[in-house]
Design a protein around this nucleic acid. Structure first.
Lengths: 101, 101
DNA sequence: ATTATTTGGTTTATAACATAAACTTCTTTA
DNA sequence: TAAAGAAGTTTATGTTATAAACCAAATAAT
């Protein structure tokens, strides 16, 4: 017997941002991906994407590996267990807002 | 056969904000409610709630009726069809981020 | 050959916005 | 009659999402 209406759970501000949520969601889908691929799939500008990747990385939600392909930089991103857990918690919290009973 | 991974749909910025989403979600649940009730259920401060109610009202997502109970102000809020539609569209859009296939 | 253009980003600037703090008005209680 | 509480509103502040500007190397165009 759930209370009616339910109580709203706070939303992780790091994930409650359109682009960061897209990046994390995408990385969970595909495991890992390079900057240009993420840029294309999310439709983000390079600048915005760069900033948001830094934030996700600083939080330990993703791992970023910067190498070179020849002399061109290559930024590869991967979801971490921390990131996956945070995403799942975020989805659960969101449900308290979305499931209008 | 859906593309894999899916494309992310843009999120209505008016609803993609914790408190406004809570207010709209709550009003959909209960139909209509007064300011103090919304304040209690969302845990918001009065100032923040006042601002966000104004924005939802300006967008036509909710209707606000300001009366008096004796000489005390009484602010009653109600979800509109526009608000309900916007919420449903927002939920659909969100699913493109949450359903990690 | 040197001048654009593209690729793959980073850094900096700005504009919006969520939120809280301060304030107002009226009522109730000490 | 002074203090505290209720019901909000207005103003100020601190983030932060986002874009604009920039950099370096490679490729294409003239």
């Amino acid at each position: 017997m759930s209370d009616q209406p339910r109580t709203f759970q706070p939303l992780d501000p790091l994930l409650h941002a359109e682009l960061r949520l897209a990046v994390v969601s995408l990385l969970i889908s595909v495991g890992e991906a390079e900057f240009p691929y993420i840029k294309e799939k999310t439709g983000a500008t390079a600048g915005n994407l760069s900033v948001q990747i830094d934030k996700l990385s600083a939080a330990g939600y993703i791992e970023v590996e910067k190498t070179f392909k020849g002399k061109k930089p290559c930024t590869r991103c991967r979801i971490t267990p921390t990131g996956l857990k945070a995403f799942e918690a975020y989805v659960d919290a969101l449900k308290t807002y979305l499931e209008v009973k």
